[in-house]
């Protein structure tokens, strides 16, 4: 049995013919026996004196430093000509939050918004479909009677616990009136846990502007006039 396992490093004590260390409750210890429970030492001589590897690490750091420095200098020549965005930057890090990555996917799911009617009322009719579909139970709605009988029902409160949200997009999918959408904004940070509950007024930030061309999707056939 043990031939395959014996080849693995650190399992040298498990080769054929050797007696495996027994747990204490199964047998009695004989006097003076040393039971080895940990893996045997497997470092090489060069590893054990550390110095070559310390030097190798310093070399790697120096290499990256020099490479970045050269790249920064090249970038600087572009920057003085006002073309900083065209050249490669010296480091891959960015200075968050003053600088943010522009390369999020346009379909990335982030912070929610509630869409508005023309008079800035929420489009939402408080049907609780999003709260029902939500697998994280992070949407809390209180419905109320709208003064306009044509609308009838609207959310008096609409709270999303954004720190509980898993950004699955089910709320967006369940909404029958296109009232909730997920934006690409992922910068959802705060110092207070209480402020991670986004209320109706904070979510009501966007009014869709309907442009005729926007409704024509690439796959659509041209309409017959």
């Amino acid at each position: 049995m043990g031939t395959q396992r014996g080849k693995n490093k650190g399992f040298e004590n498990l080769v054929d013919g050797q007696v495996l260390p027994q747990p204490a409750y199964q047998g009695e210890f004989t006097e003076g026996e040393i039971v080895q429970y940990y893996n045997p030492e497997s470092m090489t001589w060069a590893e054990r004196i550390y110095l070559p590897y310390v030097l190798a690490g310093l070399g790697l750091t120096a290499k990256v430093f020099l490479r970045n420095m050269v790249t920064w200098f090249v970038w600087l020549t572009y920057w003085v000509r006002g073309k900083g965005a065209e050249a490669k930057r010296g480091a891959t890090t960015i200075y968050y939050p003053h600088e943010m990555r522009p390369d999020f996917s346009p379909v990335n799911r982030g912070k929610h918004i509630l869409t508005m009617r023309d008079n800035d009322d929420p489009q939402c009719v408080a049907c609780y479909m999003c709260a029902t579909a939500c697998p994280a139970f992070c949407i809390h709605i209180v419905a109320g009677e709208h003064p306009d009988p044509a609308i009838e029902k609207y959310p008096v409160r609409f709270d999303i616990e954004i720190d509980k949200c898993i950004f699955c997009g089910y709320c967006e999918e369940a909404c029958p009136v296109d009232a909730i959408r997920l934006t690409t904004d992922v910068h959802l940070v705060d110092y207070k846990r209480e402020r991670m509950v986004y209320d109706r007024e904070y979510l009501l930030t966007w009014k869709p502007t309907y442009v005729e061309e926007e409704h024509v999707y690439p796959g659509d056939r041209p309409r017959k006039s």
Partner: peptide, 8 residues
């Protein structure tokens, strides 16, 4: 109007 109907 099932979304705003209490019977839904």
């Amino acid at each position: 109007d099932c979304p705003i109907c209490d019977k839904a």
